[in-house]
Design a protein around this nucleic acid. Structure first.
Lengths: 151, 151
DNA sequence: CTATTATCGTTGACTAGTCAACCATTTATT
DNA sequence: AATAAATGGTTGACTAGTCAACGATAATAG
């Protein structure tokens, strides 16, 4: 054991919902990032790839909403995805400001692998939860996330 | 309405636990960051201040564990907190590598205000949840966060 | 008692994400 | 038709966070 990490048991005392959400989010990032090293892209790109997968032709603003991410992030992530050949875009014939976004064949080909990584991670996340608990958690989280939308 | 934002309603289709956690975490950051502008520090510093508040004298590694944050982050956040006068540190007499960390009077004085900000935010987060649901959510999240600790 | 290994903290280089300002184009107002 | 306002996308500057490498000191093993 050459690592510096102790077991990162989380103290219940310091556990408001937002802090736990942060911890889960960061650990997800670490895991996904690790798993994505084999493709030449960071873990932050997968939501974009998946969103495009079942909604091809959307533009960057729609994508930003779908993912609840700033459009600046979308612009930069897309630059990377385009330059690495996973996505291409064409000018929207109905609006010359906008672009329609599509997965390339390369992009399509990795979708199943991305999904597998996410399913694996989800199993880790929910390993101590029953299916019903998992469902309850997801539903409650969704309500919480939605209730921050108005401001 | 000069703003670019549509109401960011979250699609249930795209809502695994980790993604919702990310959304909540980011919106928390935005809110807290906003609320903290009046003090000369970013929203990312409050967990450190609160952890020190009810556990003075801890060192940076302990703090990192407590908060589930990389020690590099801790080092840099502490630099800022020390240079802005919210925290000070003294060499640990039992271990000359380590420092014991303490809130200054300035640091102590803002703790109640920080807590108020967090309570307010928590109200927003849980506004659509009953107290029981809130408790269930926190408990489930804690279990999920813990189950990512082993790897 | 010396050599190895672990620990505390710092730094550099990187990813993810935000906000604000901007340009160009589109839509709405009058 | 002309002006005003909204929208799509880009960029710059910033915060939060990670990982890897390092120098010191401390603890452990031979």
């Amino acid at each position: 054991m050459t690592k510096d990490n102790h077991s990162p048991m989380i103290k219940p005392s310091s556990s408001p919902i937002s802090r736990l959400a942060g911890i889960i989010s960061r650990r997800t990032g670490a895991y996904v990032n690790q798993a994505f090293k084999q493709y030449d892209l960071g873990g932050g790109t997968y939501p974009f790839l998946l969103a495009l997968h079942h909604n091809e032709g959307m533009n960057q603003n729609q994508l930003s909403h779908e993912l609840s991410v700033d459009k600046a992030m979308t612009a930069r992530t897309l630059q990377k995805l385009i330059s690495t050949g996973y996505v291409y875009r064409i000018e929207d014939p109905d609006d010359s400001r906008a672009f329609k976004l599509y997965l390339t064949d390369k992009g399509k080909s990795i979708v199943p692998e991305l999904l597998k990584i996410l399913v694996d991670w989800n199993k880790i996340l929910t390993q101590t939860l029953s299916p019903e608990e998992t469902q309850i958690l997801a539903a409650l989280l969704l309500r919480v996330a939605d209730s921050t939308g108005s401001c």
